[in-house]
């Protein structure tokens, strides 16, 4: 197995284990740690988590594919998550999505509600929210990030 959790992550996992009666509760925190450590969640990482929390790999794989925020493949392009849920749709996320779909330099993903409906439409790049978007604003943000 090529994936190993870093020392700090292993300590964190030990700390979290005390918090829950059932180690299965650690599946989401472990998936996050693996994603931050490698940039994506590899199958090796899933096997490593499976051994730590005593849960079948298939079940963890099911969890990882259920949530849109987990990436199962590495991406060299900038990953842009645009909210596709109701509030953002009403406030015009369709236009933004249409605009971004033409852009080949980014990896665009439609994600479930990002939980910032008051500032819709919203997109997320590297854990940062960009809110109250317009097409001009999106272009400016992407230019700055490049």
């Amino acid at each position: 197995m090529s994936f190993m959790f870093s020392k700090e992550n292993l300590l964190k996992i030990e700390e979290l284990k005390k918090r829950y009666p059932n180690p299965h509760a650690l599946s989401l925190p472990c998936l996050w740690m693996a994603q931050y450590q490698e940039g994506f969640i590899s199958l090796d990482a899933i096997d490593a988590i499976s051994q730590i929390i005593h849960m079948p790999s298939m079940e963890i794989y099911g969890v990882a594919t259920f949530y849109t925020m987990f990436r199962l493949e590495p991406s060299e392009k900038l990953i842009v998550d645009v909210c596709k849920t109701l509030s953002c749709k009403l406030c015009g996320s369709d236009e933004i999505l249409e605009h971004l779909e033409k852009n080949d330099t980014i990896k665009l993903r439609h994600v479930e509600c990002l939980g910032s409906c008051s500032t819709a439409p919203v997109m997320q790049i590297n854990d940062v929210y960009y809110e109250n978007l317009t097409i001009a604003k999106v272009d400016a943000i992407l230019k700055e990030l490049k």
Partner: peptide, 20 residues
């Protein structure tokens, strides 16, 4: 043996094995 599971969500959900 836990080979089969359901992945994805909503209408994209499907039964499958782990890749490979």
């Amino acid at each position: 043996t836990h080979e089969l599971g359901i992945i994805g969500r909503g209408d994209e959900a499907k039964v499958t094995t782990m890749p490979g």
